[in-house]
Design a protein around this nucleic acid. Structure first.
Length: 427
RNA sequence: GUGGGUAUAGCUCAGUAGGUUAGAGCGCUAGAUUGUGGCUCUAGAGGCCAUCGGUUCAAUUCCGAUUAUCCACCCCA
């Protein structure tokens, strides 16, 4: 016997309807916001992610599924959605098409990690990328789309956290300030952060270990990026906030949100959800003004987010949110013997081809057991066809809930013309 | 990459201070007068007690390794 690979999940038939429904909701809201679906390959040249995500990100350094193909080219399974979409955007000259800069995707992603709750080696992401606008109103559209989507599913206790990490100019100045500041407390930093302080001191703000070990005040009192934004970045951030307020999206500013991927600039955000007093992050995103250029396109800015579908569904279950009942048959037709089973089959197919979910037994079960089975699978109506019914051309349709039975006249020889009589009773 | 937990029926779990036929609930299958579900009752199927090795007269039980899996850290969706 084989096990599924570590960190993967089988999506079984008893939960697949939840996936389908969540996906449909996402398709719907994206389309209402004017976003169009884009599908890119599952794997890309490794270079796309090296350049896109950034060499020193953990994802790139130790988590990518990278392999050589038979032509000795280095390929990598998508660890996230954005880089490959930007590659596609550039390759297809989409910047010249004003209609195709609002994109969304649903894709599997792969990261070689040790699995735990909400973290798999193969996981699925919804995402949106808006390319070409540097306006704050664009940021607010992307943020609000993710927020309203999660809200529309009925998720409670959602918290939207936003921050600005500035542009390359003000951020570099800020990093030096931060380095100086934490330099004074270097002995109190965790081993990771001692090396981080030179490469990426902003990640210290995000480090839980230091947050707990270090005097909390030291982190709280550290220089804040939003206090050190350049004029343009500050203006942008203020407008994002104004825009969010305008459409009724509540947010909290959290200077600890810095994001792990190198390509982010200015606005970054995260949506977390409280379940059992644990803050669970289900959505993350932000602005990436340098990425298109980094991957070889014209300087074009972008704004996007990713939502982890497994995490989202985990939250739905934890909050007892019933997304959609499983579809159950409207009619179950019981045939008693060979001849009657053939008649039952005709009835079932006539219904199915008229858009009705109809079922019958395929295992040669007794009437009683078929009845039990019809009940178990939740069929709303049941029709029994035996000798009597064939001879008299009369059948009873039983409402399983009320137990009421109604008789109708059917011409079994030409059932297709009589289907409407059945539909009339059960629809 | 670091640390901790778990492995017994399809599922959720008991259990044996080492001893002959290994248990429950749920689920599954069949039956309770011949053509009708939910409730109830009865019966049945289903386990090399993860794998390999050690200790022992004897191991599902104790010890070790391996594998799988879960959780936390790191990181992130």
């Amino acid at each position: 016997m084989f096990n599924r690979p570590r960190g993967t999940e089988d999506i079984l038939p008893n939960v697949s309807h939840v996936w389908q429904n969540v996906e449909n909701s996402f398709h719907n809201i994206c389309q209402n916001f004017g976003y169009k679906e884009i599908r890119t390959p599952l794997f890309e040249r490794t270079e796309v992610f090296l350049r896109g995500i950034g060499n020193n990100a953990d994802i790139v350094q130790k988590e990518m599924y990278t392999f050589l193909d038979k032509g000795q080219r280095s390929m990598t399974l998508k660890p996230e959605g954005t880089a490959s979409i930007v590659r596609c955007y550039i390759e297809n000259n989409m910047q010249y098409d004003a209609k195709s800069n609002k994109l969304y995707y649903i894709t599997p992603c792969y990261r070689y990690e040790r699995p735990q709750i909400g973290r798999l080696r193969e996981f699925h992401q919804f995402g949106v990328e808006n390319l070409g606008s540097e306006q704050a109103i664009c940021d607010s559209e992307v943020i609000s789309l993710s927020y309203f989507f999660l809200e529309s599913l009925g998720i409670k206790n959602l918290i939207l956290l936003i921050n600005s990490i500035g542009c390359e100019n003000c951020r570099d100045v800020y990093k030096i300030k931060l380095k100086d500041y934490f330099g004074k407390y270097i002995d109190n930093l965790c081993s990771n952060c001692k090396t981080r302080i030179n490469k990426n001191p902003m990640r210290i703000l995000d480090c839980k270990k230091c947050f707990e070990n270090l005097n909390r005040e030291i982190i709280d009192n550290s220089p804040k990026m939003i206090k050190n934004l350049c004029e343009d970045c500050l203006f942008h951030f203020e407008n994002v906030k104004k825009n969010l307020e305008n459409i009724g999206v509540k947010y909290q500013i959290d200077s600890k949100i810095v994001r792990g991927l190198d390509y982010y600039t200015r606005t970054v955000f995260e949506i977390i959800c409280d379940i059992e007093e644990i803050k669970f992050s289900i959505c993350g995103g932000g602005r990436y003004n340098g990425l298109v250029k980094e991957l070889g396109g014209n300087s074009t800015c972008g704004m996007g987010f990713g939502i982890g579908i497994e995490r989202l569904i985990h939250v739905l279950y934890k909050q007892n949110i019933v997304i959609l009942e499983e579809k159950t048959p409207l009619l179950f037709v019981i045939g008693m013997n060979d001849l009657e089973i053939m008649a039952a089959q005709k009835v079932v197919y006539a219904c199915r081809l008229n858009g009705i979910f109809a079922e019958m037994d395929l295992m040669n079960r007794s009437v009683k057991v078929q009845m039990k089975y019809a009940n178990k699978i939740g069929s709303k109506f049941v029709m029994v066809i035996g000798k009597k019914e064939i001879e008299s051309n009369k059948v009873k349709i039983k409402n399983m809930k009320t137990k009421n039975e109604n008789e109708i006249v059917l011409n079994f020889a030409n059932i297709k013309d009589d289907v409407y009589k059945i539909l009339k009773m059960i629809v």
